[in-house]
Simulated scan of single mutants.
Amino acid sequence: MNLDELRFDGRVAVITGAGSNPGLGRSYALLLASRGAKVVVNDLGVGPDGRGQIGAGAQAVVEEIRAAGGEAVADGNSVAERDGAQAIVKTALDTWGRIDILVNNAGIAPFAHFDEITDRDIERVVGVHLMGHIWMCRAAWPHMAAQNFGRLVNISSAVAFMGMPTQSIYAAAKLGIVGLTRSIASEGAKHGIKANVLAPTADTVALRTMLAPAFTEHNQKEGNTAEAVAPVVAWLAHEDCNLSGKVLTAVGGSVTEVFLSNTTGTQPDRTLSLETVPAAVERALDRSGATAFPDEGDFIYDVLKPYETTPRTA
């Protein structure tokens, strides 16, 4: 099958958490750079739990890209702080004068039961994942809006949909990313900004470090590599991709969509009482006639349009 090569010539991409090897962010950076994008490789060089220092981090990936003939610079700022996010975007602007693509890949995942995780680790996980996405998207937004083009690829996790013992805060933050993305997808439409979510699974340093060896062996046996995920991220980042507000998963070369839905439920009943709720809930849990939520909140956004002219408060 002959397909025209999709390229990113003239585009500038920022990819956070891209310094691990093997790692998802690194694979995204290498692929985009190989197709012509200029890449800011951001990474703090810390371990999967957000502590310590590992390897050469971002600079090592930059050297890989340059050795292959691509253009890249390293950045060591934190996505968890507003000023850090602004500094990451500034790296792109100072080096190449623009930002077209943002892949929010940075993350940490300390393992701890809900009643045992420290307050500080709760703040760190929410800070890197949910707040990191918020700060990074806000930092990139005005520049993308000014050029009427932008691609935001926000990284969630299957854990957000399924739940996982010892990862309650991580799951909460990752699901928050879905709500954030679906909302800014609606707002970004008039600015040429597309925003989507990807929940990837792959053999990475993080999973090798944190999960049982059997899981690593399974991923390797099934070909669940970071390189098999990278093309999906690259497509969501490409100018030809018109999707927005979608949630996709990618593992081993397979792609699926995750979507929210409503069951048929019950008819409005003004006589509903505490005693009749159990029967109503039983009917509500019947998924046979479920229908999907709208992909974008345009129907809500139309209602809110008059409020766009309301003066903003500081």
Rank of each mutant, 00 (worst) to 15 (best):
D119W: 10
I134R: 03
S186P: 03
A250P: 02
A314P: 13
I122T: 11
G127L: 04
P110D: 09
G253W: 09
V303M: 10
V103P: 02
L3A: 09
P231L: 01
V14D: 00
V41F: 08
D121T: 10
G265K: 05
V79T: 11
R82F: 05
H218I: 10
M210Y: 15
D240I: 01
L6G: 08
S157V: 03
T181E: 00
D94W: 08
E217K: 15
G289N: 10
N2G: 04
H218W: 14
A60E: 15
N154I: 02
K305S: 06
T291S: 14
E222Q: 11
L31H: 08
V73S: 05
W235M: 06
A33G: 10
V89C: 04
T256Q: 13
R208M: 13
A106I: 07
E81A: 05
G176D: 02
F299L: 06
F161S: 11
G19K: 05
G188E: 00
I65C: 07
S273Q: 03
L211W: 15
A158C: 12
I155C: 06
T209P: 14
T249K: 10
S254K: 15
A74V: 09
A214Q: 12
L102S: 09
A314M: 11
L31V: 08
D4F: 13
I88M: 04
V229M: 00
V258E: 02
F215Y: 15
E123W: 09
E296N: 04
D115L: 15
G25R: 05
G179L: 01
N42D: 07
A18N: 02
G57K: 14
M144D: 01
T225M: 12
R7V: 09
Q167W: 11
N21R: 15
L32E: 03
T291Q: 14
D240K: 08
G192D: 03
P268G: 13
A234P: 03
G84R: 06
H238R: 02
V46W: 07
I117Y: 09
F215R: 14
N42S: 07
V39N: 08
A202L: 12
K305G: 03
E282W: 09
T256R: 12
Y307K: 06
A60H: 13
L248A: 03
Q147S: 08
V247E: 00
D43P: 11
R208F: 10
R35Y: 01
T225P: 11
G265S: 02
G76Q: 08
Q167E: 04
L32H: 08
L198I: 13
A56Q: 15
A195R: 04
N2C: 01
A67M: 12
A67G: 15
G36C: 07
A58W: 09
R151C: 02
R98L: 04
N219C: 02
P278H: 12
P48S: 10
S78A: 07
G25E: 00
D115R: 15
K38E: 02
E222R: 12
L6H: 07
A160V: 05
L285N: 13
K221T: 13
A228D: 00
L198Q: 00
L236W: 05
D9G: 12
A146T: 07
D9T: 14
L102Y: 12
E123P: 06
K38H: 14
Q86M: 13
A37W: 00
I300Y: 11
H129N: 10
